[in-house]
């Protein structure tokens, strides 16, 4: 009987609502109900986490959490309700970036609490890198759809440059993990480098391809959330994150297929002529 009221059980229910919600979102008749079911599961998980937490917590922290949730709810609700129909994809990108930023911040805070535990540091660093890339990438995608940045900006050889930069970031991350360094400087350097990579990653991609990119970044954020789940051994973060990570990847590929273009072409090869030729090939 006690189990029924425990947090683990709430997380189990929430995980099921996410799967059910996504499944129902895939059919036109049930889509709206599916969204509401997932939202209910999410609310339950959040309330359960706050009120069933084991341990001493000072009331000021509860107040801070309450204020943060209240502000977030009001702003999120108003913005989502007021936005015009054509502006919705860019709003999704914006919210996706918020999730990525949240994951990155968790990494920044928790890094110093887990020094010496290599596996935890690995999950923290991985979640932080992915979250940061997702955040800055989503912001660029948002700006592009918004019309603020409507021209693809392309440095010569940007593919090679970007990939070398990515390898450098991963190498630096591996160095921090293996050396067991507790340097804040390194951590913040890595954080800003990952942010820069997100910008460089999305900047060369044309505005018309943004939905695919947003979907890809969406699955990145899912992955970042899943790393958080690993860190805390938190099942609902793990299931939700992995679910979105895998579903988002498949969705990205499906969107590419609907456009008759391979994903690599969207990300790496979106040169004016090249993409036209490929788009023309499809039938």
């Amino acid at each position: 009987m006690e189990y029924i009221f425990s947090l683990e059980f709430i997380y189990l229910i929430a995980s099921v609502t996410y799967i059910l919600g996504l499944k129902m979102l895939g059919h036109p008749e049930t889509a709206r109900k599916g969204n509401l079911i997932a939202a209910a599961g999410m609310t339950l998980a959040i309330i359960g986490t706050i009120f069933l937490y084991q341990g001493e917590v000072s009331s000021i922290i509860y107040i801070l959490i309450g204020i943060a949730i209240l502000i977030g709810t009001i702003i999120g609700w108003l913005v989502a309700k007021k936005v015009g129909m054509t502006k919705m994809p860019e709003l999704v990108s914006l919210f996706n970036g918020m999730g990525g930023a949240s994951a990155a911040l968790i990494g920044l805070i928790e890094f110093h609490h887990y020094i010496g535990d290599q596996l935890s540091i690995l999950t923290i660093i991985a979640g932080m890198i992915i979250g940061s890339v997702s955040f800055s990438g989503s912001m660029i995608a948002w700006a592009k759809l918004n019309g603020t940045l409507n021209k693809p900006i392309r440095l010569p050889k940007y593919n090679i440059l970007n990939n070398v930069f990515l390898l450098a970031i991963l190498g630096f991350g591996a160095f921090i993990i293996i050396s067991g360094s507790d340097s804040s400087l390194f951590l913040y350097l890595l954080f800003f480098a990952a942010l820069a990579y997100g910008i460089l990653f999305v900047l060369p991609i044309g505005g018309a391809d943004m939905p695919v990119v947003i979907s890809l970044l969406n699955s990145f954020t899912g992955l970042a959330a899943a790393f958080g789940g690993f860190l805390y051994g938190n099942m609902v973060m793990l299931t939700g994150g992995i679910l979105v990570g895998s579903a988002g990847t498949i969705l990205t590929l499906a969107m590419c297929k609907a456009m008759n273009r391979p994903l690599s072409n969207v990300i790496f090869g979106a040169f004016g002529e090249g993409s036209k030729a490929v788009a023309g090939d499809g039938n």
């Binding site: 929430a14 996410y18 919600g21 996504l22 979102l25 895939g26 889509a31 599916g34 969204n35 997932a38 939202a39 999410m42 998980a45 959040i46 986490t49 919705m88 994809p89 999704v92 919210f95 996706n96 999730g99 949240s102 994951a103 968790i106 979250g131 939905p211 947003i214 979907s215 969406n218 699955s219 954020t221 899912g222 970042a224 959330a225 958080g228 789940g229 860190l231 805390y232 938190n234 609902v236 973060m237 939700g240 994150g241 679910l243 979105v244 990570g245 579903a247 988002g248 969705l251 499906a254 969107m255 609907a258």
Partner: peptide, 18 residues
């Protein structure tokens, strides 16, 4: 595709638990 992306986007907001 787009609503599904948006729904998945909301679900990875589970990061808020962390």
């Amino acid at each position: 595709h787009t609503p599904l992306m948006s729904g998945a986007n909301a679900i990875h907001g589970v990061v808020i638990i962390g």
